[in-house]
Design a protein around this nucleic acid. Sequence first.
DNA 1: TGAATACTTAGGTAAATGCCTAACCAATCG
DNA 2: CGATTGGTTAGGCATTTACCTAAGTATTCA
Lengths: 111, 111
Amino acid sequence: MPNQSLMLDQVFQALANPTRREVVQLLGRGPAAMTELARSFKMALPSFLQHLQVLEKCGLVRSQKTGRSRVYELAPEPLEAAEDWMKAARRHWETRFDQLDSFLLSQKENT
Amino acid sequence: MPNQSLMLDQVFQALANPTRREVVQLLGRGPAAMTELARSFKMALPSFLQHLQVLEKCGLVRSQKTGRSRVYELAPEPLEAAEDWMKAARRHWETRFDQLDSFLLSQKENT
DNA sequence: TGAATACTTAGGTAAATGCCTAACCAATCG
DNA sequence: CGATTGGTTAGGCATTTACCTAAGTATTCA
């Protein structure tokens, strides 16, 4: 895994936008061509293409050109990577719960 | 839940940065004051403060001022929300697996 | 009280983001 | 072939982001 951190940067960045998240959801239902996807949004096509490119650059989406149409499909691996990171972060917090208790207690004692 | 989408925007945006992700990880081990946290980074303090403010604005972190120091702690709820969104996205993809098979098949048939 | 510590505010810059229009291919359709 | 359809490139613009330095304010220490 070369530069895991940069990869997470890109995935989270990609998901930090409602248009792109909606595309991910749409593609969850199955592959679709660009204009087909674009119909759901009130955006100029070049702007929309940029979003697709952001998704593709970070690997959340793959595409393939057939004839004059380009078909996109979801690639859930990066989604998993991001999910794993979050899970780990939360896990730390949870296993530290007792420590939190004693911290709050020590605060009280200092009063 | 007022404007769930905006909330996800902010959480994902917050996590799309290595410094902020590291802060989240650090706080997973327990609460810490600002300068204490800042020691792990080679950044000017005002710059670092901005990161903490981004984290706090989206609810990933809470803080409280005591005397002259401000103590931060992790708040894992938004993390959970983001995780849930991802889980749902992946779930769609998974339940659609058979449809993918038939799609690829139909592509082949068109050759 | 004066100095040190811990954070805050103000203001500035370079690069990235999100959007647009106009114009340009390339594959079909009539 | 000429027009249409589906996608792409180029270029521009306003806003946001990620950083910085300099100069505060507010506690606490000596």
